[in-house]
Amino acid sequence: MVKLFPHKNTLTEKHVKANKVADDRVPDGILKKCPKCHTEIFANQLDSYLTCPNCDYGFRIPAKKRIEWLVDDFEEWDSEISPSDPLKFPNYDQKIAKAKKNSGLNEAVLTGQAKIDGQSFALGIMDPTFIMGSLGQMTGEKITRLFEKATKKGLPVVLFTASGGARMQEGILSLMQMAKVSNAVAKHSQAGLLYIAVLTDPTTGGVTASFATEADITLAEPHAMVGFAGRRVIEQTIHQEIASDLQDAENVLKHGFIDHIVKRQDERSTIEWLLKFGGEAND
C-alpha cells in the first residue's frame, strides 16, 4: 500500500514511522470514491498524500496534514488569530467552533516560515476543512501579514489556495480582504521577491479573483476545480448545461491562466527547484 516517498528525512517520513501502528488501525474496508474519475479506492490504498492512484486527483486535505510531507521545518506565525464576527451573524460562532475542531487551526489558513532543503520561505496553506477555506476578515489578515513579513524579511512566498470564496457571514469586510491582500502582494512583488501560488481543489470566487491569480508562477494540482463563478450560477445565467471540465485546472491551463500542473508527490521537489531558479538568482 505505501508509496515510496521521493524524499528522505521529510517530516512525513518521521511522522509515518511514528504512526505506523496508528496507520495499521485504519480499517481495510473503508471505500473512498475519487470525485473525478470515480475509481473506488480502499482507505489503505491512500498514503499521506491523499491522491487518487488512478488519476492523481488530490483529495481535500487539512493544512496541517499537507505540511507533514511538504517541508523539513515549519515555524507558525499568528496562530492565535481567530475569526471576527462583524455582522454578529446568527449561529456563526458554532460554525467557527466546529471548523476549529476539524482543522486544528484558528482560521482558514496556516501561515509561517518554512524550509525545504535549507531554503527559507514564507508559506501559507488554506484549509478546506475550515468553513471551506472561505476568505474571512482574519483569513485575509493572516495572508496580508504573510506577505508583509515576507517583504520585510526578503523571503519568497508560497501560497496553497483552497477556498469556496468570500465568507458570507462576514459581509462586506470579507470582500475588502481581496483588495487588502492584493496591495500586500503588490508590495512584495515590487521588492523583487518571488511569489508562487499552488491552486488546490477548490479555488473559487473571491480567492480566484485576487491573490490566487496574482503570482509570478501559478501551479495547480491535477483536476483541481479553479474558477470564479459557481457552476449552478453559470448554468442559470446561460440557460444551458456546462461541460463538467470547464473549471478543471487542465482546462484553465489550456486557456492560459495556469503555468503548470504538478502532482502532489512532486510538489516538494518542484517548489525546491523553483525557489532556487524561479526568482532572482543568488550569487
Binding site: M178, A179, S182, N183, V185, A186, G205, T208, A209, S210, F211, A212, T213, E214, G227, F228, A229, G230, V233, I234, T237, I238, I242, L246, Q247, N251, H255, G256, F257
Partner: peptide, 19 residues
C-alpha cells in the same frame, strides 16, 4: 457569470485590477 467569462479568466481579470 458566463461560460466564456470563465474561459477568458474572469477571476484573473478582477485580480489584476486589484493589483
Amino acid at each position: 457569470p458566463g461560460k466564456s467569462a470563465e474561459e477568458n479568466g474572469q477571476g484573473e481579470a478582477i485580480a489584476q485590477n486589484l493589483l
